[in-house]
Simulated assay, not measured.
Amino acid sequence: MTKPVLLNNIDHKDLRVITRRGADLGDERAFAPTFPDEFRSLQAHYPIVFRKADDGTFEPIALFGFENDENLFLEGQEWQATTVPLLVERLPFLIGQNGDELTVHIDLDNPRVSTTEGEPVFLAHGGVSPYLDHVNAMLLAIHEGMRSNAAFTDALARNELLEGFALDITLDDGSQHRLGGFYTVNEERLAQLPAAAIDSLHKAGFLGPIYFQIASMSNFRSLIERKNCRHAAGR
């Protein structure tokens, strides 16, 4: 359950947000949505793949694990990567819109919301805290970034660059796992695109994210190693 409300410095003057990581705070998740402008920073750590929605559209996500509610980057209160996807880091805040104006909402039922622990949302005299300034910047980046997803994935689909893949994993203990239902960019098709199509992708700013996504697939090796280490530790 969520309880998003419009943030204000009267009703929420005493609110704090717990910024440490932890399964008790909702970080035990297997993936997070992302967007092309974020690929550069995420591809150093996570596999970036695409999932297909019921309406046939595609959405890029950063993978953290191979099973539901499995985050192989989470160790106690530590997230073992220097970059946390913005759609995770911004919690418990959400973007609202009133006409053309963007508004900030907060989910009061989120376990990160507190009055005794964490970063203050507002200053004692009612002003915006440095932490909330940071949140506002994140939410704006998310808003602008997520708006680019439709054009980006439409361009990939139009050029027939997306292909489904399955990953069969055998762990050190002999157990087998299969990851399927996701899509990636087909490098061979990309290399065979005519110059006009490549130029169109370049002018739209999509070539960089395409190559970052392809490069991110090498992170499956380290993700499998994280899975092996967790199995070896009996977790």
Rank of each mutant, 00 (worst) to 15 (best):
F122C: 01
F122H: 01
F122G: 01
F122W: 01
L123R: 09
L123H: 08
A124F: 13
A124N: 06
A124H: 11
A124M: 11
A124R: 09
H125D: 01
G127R: 03
G127V: 10
V128E: 02
S129H: 01
P130L: 08
P130C: 08
L132H: 00
L132E: 00
L132I: 00
D133P: 03
V135K: 00
A137D: 07
M138C: 10
M138R: 00
M138P: 05
M138A: 03
M138E: 00
L139V: 04
L140R: 13
A141E: 01
I142G: 07
I142K: 06
H143W: 08
H143P: 04
E144P: 15
G145S: 03
G145C: 06
M146P: 15
R147L: 08
R147W: 08
R147K: 15
R147I: 11
S148F: 02
N149W: 01
A150H: 15
A150C: 10
A150F: 11
F152T: 03
F152L: 04
T153W: 02
T153D: 01
D154Q: 05
D154V: 10
A155P: 02
A155Y: 00
A155G: 02
L156Y: 04
L156F: 09
L156K: 02
A157R: 03
A157N: 05
R158V: 12
R158Y: 09
N159V: 12
N159H: 14
E160W: 02
E160N: 12
L161H: 07
L161P: 14
L162F: 11
L162E: 04
L162R: 05
E163K: 10
E163H: 14
E163Y: 13
E163P: 14
F165G: 05
A166E: 14
L167A: 09
L167Q: 06
D168W: 13
D168I: 14
I169M: 07
I169V: 12
T170C: 12
T170Q: 11
D172S: 10
D172P: 06
D172C: 12
D173F: 15
D173G: 13
D173L: 12
D173A: 12
S175M: 11
Q176W: 05
Q176T: 11
H177Y: 12
R178H: 13
L179T: 07
L179G: 06
L179H: 09
G180F: 11
G181R: 02
Y183I: 13
Y183K: 12
Y183V: 15
T184P: 14
T184Q: 14
T184H: 15
T184M: 15
V185Q: 00
N186F: 03
E187R: 07
E187N: 00
E187S: 07
E188S: 15
E188Y: 02
R189H: 11
L190C: 08
L190G: 02
L190N: 05
A191Y: 04
A191S: 12
A191W: 08
Q192H: 10
Q192A: 12
L193N: 07
L193I: 10
P194C: 03
